[in-house]
Design a binder for these strands. Structure first.
Lengths: 360, 360
DNA sequence: TCAGTCTATCGAATCGATTCGATTACGCGC
DNA sequence: GCGCGTAATCGAATCGATTCGATAGACTGA
């Protein structure tokens, strides 16, 4: 063939063997005589053959060695979250034995009617992506639609932090119990007036106090469960919703809560980043932590640049979650069915929570 | 066919058209009569056909719609770096018009001889990954080897922050000039005794003062260029090497430098995170920034939780770098050749640098 | 009305490797 | 010397879609 790269057939011809034998030399799926192996190797060197074309191989094999990871946010936003980052790490490690790579996908909202024809190229999405399995992360709004697409395509799915319905393995945390533990910890320390700083309630992110009259629950699972856990101990706590898990958001929340007429003596933050922000805000108000204000976080991440504080928090096994998801994927791909896994958070008593300050 | 999912041939038969016509209905590459389109659509609905199998399509097309992104570190470590995160964002956006996804790859060190046979499955690596193009990020040690593999496979490559040799588009910054600007800024403010806190010098990360006698240059490009830029103004500055771009690392460096017998009046940090750490260390030593100590950073990222400081820094267009890499990929895939791009950093005067304190 | 466009559709070749059942060759025991 | 088991190799079918040149109608204008 005049054009293009050599194919395995070229190599086979050059080596004087059949294509099947040449193929076997590369895949190692059957015994090959040493001499033959060497002949094929030599031929492929001579021709500059760099191994089987993954496209063709994956067509024939029916496997591509790629696991899709779907985020509901912009990729950049997803990686701002240390928990997700750790989880990705676990995921990457977990799929390694499978020889798979991770394909980052964003859960696009389908093109609106205003734009009829997408670009020239068909967009790579859940519908078309070349993946053996998919992990949905922090799924919420579009979850159902995504699942439907994947179910139709017959692609195995694992969901992290979200309810996917029966038959789909999910990996999550004992969010409610864990958060209740933190609240009970504060109650034991004597705190009565406690505020809760929550993660976003829904995709439509906003910031501010949640009116006591508001009866609806957060539509994001994590937020809802942690809120419930805290409310089991402090049903009447003031609740402040943030727009993202960021130190700055925690700062805003802290500033608002601590400047109120009757500031809380303790704050339950739904993430470590939020807690860090609350603590910074407290410092700026002249409050000492934990003497004047107790703060609990959630996640147990390594907070860069936060010494000497060590958050009282709930350490979640973020990397293990990723690993578990990967394991589930591996199992599903080998035909077994995978069970859901619920991880527990470990309560960690740091130096940001203490006895309720004496009332003056 | 008794088994498996329906193919486009099944759909065509069901609709009473030829496979080619059915294919065209899905790809839209040729005009199709409305009635025919509807017939095919109906047939595929009836059969539960979910669109062309990406494996087969990519074999025939010779394109997979996947762009590989190679990091030299663990994935988790890579995403700890806000600059890389932003860059990924730009990259993701930039390849979108191409309809491509990003496949995360780690630049593995080849298996040592100790472990002869990898797992049953062949590992997905640069050698075998199904990608149309690859972006190498922050490449260093294994760069040459990776390039060789990709060159042999005939896969287009773009390198971000690293020298790939002739013919390979690279995306980088005017690191040297930019860092010199910061140094000149400090010189104008009257600073004479300045310390430099650098990023890691090589893959083998260590932390500590760099002996004045040490003559070798950092092997990591970014570190080397920024160091040179600073030294053009302050050839004799004390140099402290860190093990990673982290606030805590900056803190270590700051603590060491500021407790020395003759502490500097200004610190040039090679990243914003390092600068933030230095500032925290200064605070703990009872120094005010910028009255007692000036600190400059590099990157211009939004430092979460760092108010009220605004770093004096060099803002680099991180997302634009990613976009540029993506554009280069797009161009190369359409046969044109892509030029290298060098971005400029914008000097930003924040509130962390000021006049040299009066000597007492 | 007929040559001369367009359009929509069809057939058949092709992308490159894998796989499995069949075949050859060889060594060995009886 | 014959049959048989084993190991290595071969052939041919297959994976599922895409593409390009050919063709059959339908339509236009002279």
């Amino acid at each position: 063939m005049a054009t293009g790269r050599p194919t395995i057939a070229d190599v086979a011809r050059e080596a004087g063997v059949s294509p099947s034998t040449a193929s076997v030399v590369f895949s190692g799926k059957a015994p090959v005589a040493d001499a033959t192996r060497r002949r094929v190797r030599a031929a492929s060197d001579r021709l500059g053959y760099t191994g089987p074309d993954p496209r063709a191989a994956s067509l024939r094999r029916g496997r591509s060695g790629v696991v899709g990871v779907v985020f509901e946010e912009r990729l950049g936003a997803a990686f701002l979250d240390p928990v997700k980052t750790l989880m990705m790490d676990g995921l990457a490690e977990g799929v390694a034995p499978l020889g798979a790579g991770l394909l980052l996908l964003r859960d696009e909202v389908p093109a609106s009617t205003s734009e009829p024809a997408p670009p020239a190229e068909p967009a790579l999405s859940l519908e078309t992506a070349l993946v053996d399995a998919v992990v949905l992360v922090g799924a919420s709004g579009r979850l159902a639609a995504s699942l439907e697409i994947l179910r139709a395509r017959g692609i195995p799915v694992v969901v992290i932090e979200g309810d996917a319905g029966a038959g789909i393995p999910r990996i999550d945390l004992d969010n409610l119990d864990a958060q209740r533990q933190a609240a009970e910890h504060l109650r034991r320390l004597g705190h009565e007036h406690v505020a809760i700083v929550t993660l976003p309630w829904s995709g439509r992110r906003r910031r501010g106090l949640v009116a006591a009259s508001r009866e609806d629950d957060p539509s994001i699972d994590v937020t809802r469960e942690r809120l419930r856990g805290a409310r089991e101990v402090y049903p009447d706590a003031t609740v402040f919703e943030t727009a993202a898990s960021l130190i700055d958001e925690g700062w805003e929340a802290g500033a608002a809560l601590l400047r109120a007429v009757n500031p809380p003596t303790a704050v339950i933050a739904q993430s470590d980043l939020l807690a860090a922000g609350v603590i910074r805000a407290a410092e700026e108000c002249g409050l000492r932590v934990p003497q004047d204000l107790s703060v609990t976080g959630f996640d147990g991440i390594a907070l860069d640049g936060f010494a000497p504080y060590e958050l009282t928090t709930l350490a979640q096994p973020a990397a293990a979650k990723g690993r578990a998801a990967a394991d589930a994927v591996v199992r599903m791909l080998s035909g077994e069915d995978a069970a859901s896994v619920r991880f527990s958070c470990a309560f960690r008593h740091g130096n940001t929570s203490g006895l309720r300050p004496r009332l003056d």
